[in-house]
């Protein structure tokens, strides 16, 4: 402790390079450090991930086996095959909580103050969060696919279609991540965020085609369900996986493929700029 705390020779931050390419490299390097940080959190606190996995697996078991035997699909088909694409997408939605809490935790703890007092790219914290959540989503999806195969789910289309379906699910996840980042920045209290997210996410899954075909819902509920962004992704992936339960009479149901791309892009167009503005405004 009492040794001299001198600057070790040669230990200086590289001077900032202002060319666009150099700035991009600088930002990417910082974002990668932040990505690794978030992955290290998962390794350090695996219980969070385990809790996070139990929910979708429970939904598969409860809906697939307990209620599922009584469920009928309008066009016929196996209910568990209908259910799994819904659970994949729903799991992406529940990632919102982890994203928002993680960001709120950072802001609350003042570690963001240190980041902001360093020569670090301003967007690296949020970009790193988004990248780490995408990596997590890939792992989650892989696990769920294995669980699905175990309970009898399968894809009936080609491998290209299946990969396209996975792409749509991950695209929605990226959009949801940015909603979560924004939430975490607006409500900078980790406990509040956790309390807000679940009651908001649950009705969103209930009012969708995840568990029940909207045709079977009473009139206006069915319409709301069909326009729900989750439903578009679920319907599109059902179609791509060759699982039952897509299509319908409404415009939204017939254009689910288009909407499955448009909804996430719209969310990104709104929440990416909002989040970055909000992050910069933390300096007030």
């Amino acid at each position: 402790m009492s040794t001299m705390l001198q600057r070790p020779p040669g230990l200086i931050a590289p001077p900032p390079d202002r060319t666009p390419l150099a700035r991009l490299r600088w930002t990417a390097a910082d974002a990668w450090v932040m990505t690794k940080r978030n992955m290290a959190h998962v390794v350090r606190a695996p219980e969070e991930v385990i809790i996070y996995f139990t929910l979708p697996i429970m939904f598969v078991l409860v809906f697939g086996y307990v209620f599922g035997s009584g469920m009928e699909l309008p066009g016929g088909g196996d209910y568990r095959e209908f259910l799994l694409p819904g659970v994949f997408t729903m799991t992406m939605l529940y990632g919102l909580g982890a994203t928002a809490t993680g960001i709120a935790f950072d802001v609350d703890r003042g570690v963001v103050d240190r980041f902001r007092s360093m020569p670090m790219a301003r967007s690296a914290l949020v970009a790193g969060r988004s990248a780490a959540d995408l990596i997590r989503a890939v792992l989650e999806l892989a696990t769920l696919v294995v669980c699905g195969l175990l309970v009898g789910w399968q894809w009936r289309g080609g491998i290209a279609d299946a990969l396209a379906a996975v792409g749509l699910i991950l695209l929605l996840r990226i959009a949801i991540t940015w909603v979560g980042i924004y939430l975490g920045l607006v409500v900078p209290n980790p406990d509040t965020v956790g309390v807000i997210v679940f009651p908001a996410a649950f009705p969103l899954t209930a009012l969708s085609n995840v568990f029940v075909a909207p045709e079977l819902m009473p009139g206006w509920l069915g319409a709301v369900s069909e326009w729900n962004p989750l439903s578009s992704t679920v319907a599109a992936t059902r179609e791509l996986f060759g699982n039952p339960g897509f299509g319908g009479d409404s415009w939204a149901a017939q254009h689910s493929m288009l909407l499955a791309v448009a909804w996430p892009l719209l969310l990104l167009a709104i929440f990416v700029p909002l989040s970055i503005r909000r992050y910069q405004k933390l300096s007030r």
């Binding site: 940080r37 703890r109 003042g110 570690v111």
Partner: peptide, 10 residues
């Protein structure tokens, strides 16, 4: 700062 600004999970 007045409050420790480190990542407490790491």
């Amino acid at each position: 700062g007045q409050y420790a600004a480190v990542d407490e999970t790491l």
